[in-house]
């Protein structure tokens, strides 16, 4: 085989590297991926003693069924009752379902004036082409306000449970964090390099078009959140902390939810007193239309995206 390049220069080309990788001569991970294998669980003598003691107590009081008549009776009783309960429940539900009105029948009770008005007037009333968004963010906005607070309070509960506040523990957690992922994984990084922008842009698209096409704040926010999680997985917490820290999270959530509350308070107040809100609905179909729905969608989207990422960060190392 004639070769234009000398051996040394050939070794520098990409073709050679690909060929070498293909033949399996060199593992591209060696020396580049920093993965600390999870150590087998170690414990000092005292905690081990305590654990063995605890386990013995547990064994004696809970699992030693043969010598504990009461427990044996209970566990048998429990098994029988639970199976019976589940089957009764399934039976009742199936029996009940057979008496329900058939799906999609025009004469069903739920095909009444409520649904009809939603379908006919939603575009005119709310300015949203996507009737579902019009319903959840305008007709029944109070429920959705409650629903976004469910999300907020769920995050707070996770914060209570998992947030690590003391300095020393935080450091320990951060060191342990390397156990969960390889650092500088090339494949992951390259894939993430292409995918993350696309996922985030798609999420933004879904949020901004919430009133025009399927989707909306919640789904778009979840998509952005998963994009952020992929980014963290590929590039590590150090990189994401350049633009997203606990403070950012706090303020984004605060501003978005506060805006949501204030905007809805204003609009409820006006609605109850039959006043005009003075917010133009615009022409249905435009991106800047349907009054408050677009800003509210953006707020919900931001809250959801931050929440999803916050959950992940909390689960991984108890902080950002």
């Amino acid at each position: 085989m004639s070769r234009l390049l000398s051996e040394q220069e050939y070794r520098k080309t990409k073709a050679f590297k690909v060929k070498r990788w293909y033949r399996g001569d060199k593992d591209p991970y060696i020396g580049r991926v920093e993965l600390r294998p999870q150590k087998p669980f170690e414990e000092d003598v005292n905690t081990q003693k305590k654990r063995i003691h605890d386990e013995a107590i547990l064994q004696r009081n809970i699992y030693d069924i043969e010598h504990n008549r009461k427990l044996m009776m209970f566990s048998k009783f429990y098994k029988v009752i639970s199976v019976l309960f589940v089957f009764t429940l399934i039976g009742i539900l199936l029996y009940m379902v057979s008496y329900l009105p058939p799906v999609g029948n025009a004469a069903n009770p739920d095909n009444n004036e409520v649904a009809t008005k939603y379908i006919e007037d939603a575009m005119k009333d709310t300015g949203a082409v996507n009737i579902v968004t019009g319903m959840i963010l305008d007709y029944r906005a109070f429920d959705t306000l409650g629903e976004s607070n469910v999300l907020f309070i769920a995050t707070c509960t996770v914060l209570i449970l998992l947030r690590v506040d003391s300095r020393s523990k935080k450091k320990e957690e951060e060191e342990n964090d390397r156990l969960y992922e390889p650092k500088n994984d090339i494949i992951l990084q390259k894939v993430a390099f292409f995918l993350v922008p696309m996922i985030i842009i798609f999420g933004i698209y879904v949020i901004l078009n919430g009133h025009l096409s399927p989707g909306g704040g919640f789904s778009g926010g979840a998509i952005i959140g998963s994009g952020l999680i992929l980014y963290v997985n590929a590039f590590g917490f150090k990189k994401i902390e350049r633009f997203f820290t606990q403070k950012t999270y706090k303020w984004i959530c605060f501003v978005a939810l506060l805006f949501y509350c204030l905007a809805k308070t204003y609009s409820f107040y006006c609605g109850a007193h039959h006043l005009e809100t003075g917010i133009p609905l615009g022409t249905p179909g435009d991106i800047l239309s349907s009054g408050l729905i677009l800003p509210l969608n953006i707020c919900v989207g931001m809250v959801v995206a931050c929440t999803m990422y916050a959950f992940y960060a909390m689960f991984r190392k108890g902080g950002f």
């Binding site: 989707g215 998509i223 998963s226 991984r316």
Partner: peptide
């Protein structure tokens, strides 16, 4: 609407949280 949310939350984020 639901399909998008289910795919993102149910299949994506929930499972990742379980893995962690």
């Amino acid at each position: 609407d639901l399909a998008i949310t289910e795919a993102a939350v149910g299949a994506g984020i929930t499972s990742i949280l379980f893995f962690v």
